[in-house]
């Protein structure tokens, strides 16, 4: 009765502390080439009808933070969640411009890309403090026990940021969700193919559980 009184009062004042937070900054984090931008595009295509980022098979395609404001998704129960989607550059401990040379770039392009990529990694780490929730996008065909993954997880845990792990590329034969689940047993893991949209409904449903 008391709660209802205050609810009515606050609704008249257009302020409701009992309402759940429904606008958050949702970051996509992970190592390079895990599929963060492909997932960002999938989310934006599904709910906004337009893509967000460019994707490439060459690592460090995303070299600056990209934000899509006001992305609203709905779950099966009709609940709505609105967030700013933040696509971040992949976090790495090494960047060699010669890797880009081998992908067919000229020396200047390769050096510029390497320089931008290093700045991108720094920005990704700095932006951790701004996130309300994070989806860690891991390539399910790769070994998840990398120190980059462990450092990302440890820093999210230290900041009490809710985490959902998207085990991406499950359309590929080599993929294994179980290995990722075993590596990070304390987190929700959803296997998806961001490229083909496989299991994406489960991903959205789990996102509602994790983002609070």
């Amino acid at each position: 009765m008391v709660k209802n009184f205050f609810k009515n009062l606050f609704s008249k004042l257009k302020f409701n502390p009992f309402a759940k937070k429904n606008h958050v900054k949702l970051g996509l984090y992970g190592p390079p080439n895990g599929g963060k931008s492909t997932l960002a595009n999938r989310i934006c295509l599904d709910w906004l009808g337009e893509e967000m980022s460019s994707v490439s098979h060459i690592a460090h395609e995303t070299r600056e933070i990209k934000i899509k404001e006001q992305v609203s998704i709905k779950n099966k129960k009709g609940r709505e969640l609105t967030f700013s989607l933040v696509d971040t550059p992949g976090i790495a401990t090494k960047i060699d411009y010669e890797d880009f040379l081998r992908k067919g770039m000229n020396k200047k392009e390769a050096k510029d890309r390497a320089k931008e990529a290093t700045k991108g990694v720094i920005d990704s780490i700095k932006w951790l403090d701004n996130m309300d929730s994070v989806v860690v996008v891991l390539d399910a065909t790769r070994d998840p026990y990398s120190q980059v993954n462990i450092t990302i997880m440890g820093n999210l845990q230290a900041r009490n940021i809710p985490v959902l792990i998207a085990a991406n590329k499950v359309d590929l034969k080599k993929s294994s969700i179980d290995v990722i689940k075993a590596a990070f047993p304390q987190y929700e893991v959803v296997g998806i193919s961001a490229k083909y949209g496989k299991n994406i409904e489960d991903f959205y449903e789990t996102l509602f559980k994790v983002v609070k």
Binding site: K94, T118, K119, V148, T151, G154, N155
Partner: peptide, 17 residues
Amino acid sequence: REEEADLIEITMEEISP
């Protein structure tokens, strides 16, 4: 944990040919 993230940040700042 925070130092591990700082280590990555500082490594990136130091990267050169």
